[in-house]
Amino acid sequence: MELLLVALVGVLYSAGIYLMFRRSMVKLLLGFIILGNGANILIFLMGELTKGKAPIIDAEETHFVDAYADPVPQALILTAIVISFGLTAFAIVLLNKVYSTTGSDDLDSLNIQDLDI
């Protein structure tokens, strides 16, 4: 049911943005992941949803015989998911580094330029 997914996208975006508004670094990161999930679902919705049928041509055929899911958004999302892992990993290490250097999790307290990180 697409309407459910539409609502889900909204909820994921809200939650992601809300978490990114927090001052805690970990919440920022979680918000970022959730926002990414929301974006993936959004892209997924852009191709018309087809229940059950993967974009895989039947073994005996050389062409699609019946309805198939749109492959382009899937290819996009697949790369997005993998990239997001790399990004999350880098961000997490960066935050860890910031935390161990400044001893603060409060993003607001990082607002000093002359810190030797």
Binding site: V82, F85, G86, A89, I92, V93, N96
Partner: peptide, 17 residues
């Protein structure tokens, strides 16, 4: 590449953090 990237990331983190 994927194996290399994931293992590098995770093991580096596990060892150094």
């Amino acid at each position: 590449v994927v194996i290399g990237v994931v293992l590098t990331i995770l093991f580096t983190i596990a060892e150094n953090v």
